[in-house]
Design a protein around this nucleic acid. Structure first.
Lengths: 207, 207
DNA sequence: AGGGCGATCTTGGCGCCGTAAAGATATCTT
DNA sequence: AAGATATCTTTACGGCGCCAAGATCGCCCT
């Protein structure tokens, strides 16, 4: 009753601690950085004992998995938005790339957790094939919209992978101060992203 | 005298512990992975007390810096070799990319440390501008060899950055098992790398 | 040559971490 | 109402990064 925040749903006798822990972890990640994120600190932030999280997550990495999953959802949404707002499919490819890198730059800690946990499991937590609506599939379908042959699955997958690689690579390189002057020369960070994507000509190989 | 390995040079009264610690850390990284690398474990592996490393490195991150620095040197060498062995400049660009990703795949733990420490400092530990002979500058100069205008510095830097981004992105994506079947369909991992680089057309924008 | 000195290494200790086990407490079921 | 069950706390263990104090050893200077 005298909880800090009486929240929406409480399927158990106490508040929704699982939710609170994910939020606390996200908050700590953003404010203190990934190195400062300990399970004990998350519990402290959520106002519970150090062992409480173990009733909702098998271990620390499972909590991080949950944080990463929310990150992938956020990225999905950002990509869907960029695709929907683009004037045409070719422009959509560039805008998706820009949205991707902007997401990574605005949520660096979450983005890092997303790829760290993925790397540990050697598992890209995004649907890659079939008719799913994951971010990856959205990019692939945008290539089709832009004129790629929908039957050449290999070429399609190659194009999507190449685009994803450059976006991810750019997202990581954008952190380095060595590229500040290039961003400035181009009139801003987003223009820098755009220039790199243009240089790579993502849609350029379509016939 | 009864040391495990009496080594080449000993500038101090004992063995070259600094060297031994870097080697031990590298060995542990490769065999146990980055998460298992503690300063105490490195000391154990090197056969010294847990506090001994502090006479050679300010803290753990400084040891990792040293490991990363050796990694960058190895990467430099791999790139120089690829460039030297290529038949012509255009091919050199692709071969450098393949060599980059192969290095990352063959030394995943070191590669990870290289970028982790760089990210923490927001500092790309590779000479980016001027006439240096860093790996980055080698790539840039290869673009000039391939016909890029050496006076359009901005375009040159953009091309180099774009190429580096795709190589780094591909190096990270290549870990994910989702792309196994694509590698198999293309006849091997290296062919996969080649196909992605070809798809991106690194040298394609040269006039 | 030998005595001091500084660099190198060890010991012991602090507070933090992840996590397991066992006890307390509140809710749900019957 | 009572027992079962899920949730949370307490306590504890070993490992971690790091610090400070002490021991040890090579080196230099006279």
């Amino acid at each position: 009753m005298s909880n800090t925040q009486a929240a929406e749903s409480r399927p158990y006798h106490h508040g929704d601690l699982r939710r609170a822990l994910i939020d606390a972890a996200t908050r700590l990640l953003e404010t203190e950085g990934p190195s400062a994120l300990s399970l004990r600190a998350v519990a402290r932030e959520a106002g519970v004992s150090p062992a409480a999280p173990y009733h909702h997550f098998k271990d620390k990495s499972e909590l991080l998995d949950a944080v990463a999953a929310e990150g992938w959802t956020m990225l999905d949404n950002a990509i869907a938005k960029a695709r929907a707002e683009a004037a045409n499919p070719a422009e959509a490819l560039d805008e998706i790339g820009v949205a991707y890198v902007c997401f990574a730059r605005q949520n660096p800690a979450i983005y890092r957790v997303m790829y760290d946990t993925a790397r540990d499991k050697e598992d890209f937590p995004v649907e890659v094939d079939g008719g799913g609506d994951s971010a990856y599939c959205k990019v692939r379908d945008t290539f089709i919209d832009a004129g790629a042959n929908p039957n050449d699955l290999q070429e399609l997958e190659l194009a999507t992978t190449a685009a994803w690689c450059s976006a991810h690579g750019l997202a990581e390189m954008a952190n380095f101060k060595q590229f500040e002057h290039l961003k400035a020369a181009l009139g801003g960070e987003v223009e820098f992203f755009r220039a790199v994507f243009k240089r790579l000509g993502l849609a350029g190989h379509l016939r």
